[in-house]
Simulated assay, not measured.
Amino acid sequence: MATTSCDVAIVGAGLGGCFLAMLLRRRGQNVVVIEQGPSIPSAGADFLKPPGLRVLARHGLADLVGRHGLRRDHIRYYHDGDPIQDCRFPDGGFLIRPYRELVELIYTCCAMEGVEFWFGAEIGDIAVGGGGVEELTLADGRRLRAGVVVGADGTRSL
């Protein structure tokens, strides 16, 4: 099988991986995102606090993400039915939006900008040399040579 080359390989197509892929592609990088699942992940955080909303706004995504979300400025945490802490978020509060919807929005932006996604792609081997990753070999035999490899797949990252 032929080897595919790219500037950046990102392992993990969750919110962080997709957002990074979008930013890098906007800067002219050739990006491939590798995801072991059959599609974008559906589990994760369901609300965005003010710092995350500011990051989205800086990159022109706040209106898109906020369009169907619920805005709130107060969270009450409970333990065994008893309130244990109140958190207030001034300056616009936070946004509640299902995680899968958030990732789908960012994924759609990535796809429109030319980021390549490899779903169902499990890493079989990592060739290391010269101070970094030289090549990824997937379980299905595909090979990927990237200038930089970023692990955005959380605690199970290789």
Rank of each mutant, 00 (worst) to 15 (best):
A2P: 00
T3W: 00
T4C: 06
S5D: 03
C6P: 14
C6T: 11
D7R: 15
V8I: 15
I10E: 11
V11T: 09
G12P: 05
G14F: 09
F19G: 01
A21S: 06
M22Y: 05
L23Y: 03
G28A: 05
Q29W: 06
V31D: 14
E35K: 00
Q36H: 03
Q36D: 06
S39T: 11
I40V: 15
P41V: 08
P41L: 04
A45Y: 12
K49S: 02
K49H: 08
P51Q: 11
G52N: 05
R54T: 02
R58E: 11
G60W: 06
L64M: 15
R67G: 12
H68A: 13
H68D: 12
G69Y: 05
R76K: 04
R76E: 15
Y77D: 09
Y78D: 01
Y78A: 06
D80F: 08
G81Y: 05
I84P: 00
Q85N: 12
D86N: 03
C87H: 13
P90L: 13
D91P: 00
G92N: 05
G92V: 00
I96M: 06
R97S: 09
R97D: 03
P98Y: 01
E101S: 06
L102P: 13
E104C: 13
I106G: 11
Y107K: 01
C110F: 05
C110A: 07
A111M: 09
A111H: 14
G114C: 13
G114Q: 10
E116H: 13
W118E: 06
A121I: 03
E122H: 02
E122V: 02
E122M: 01
I123N: 01
G124W: 01
D125V: 01
D125F: 02
A127G: 04
G132A: 07
V133Y: 07
L138E: 04
L138H: 11
L138G: 05
A139Q: 06
D140K: 04
G141E: 12
V149Y: 02
S157K: 13
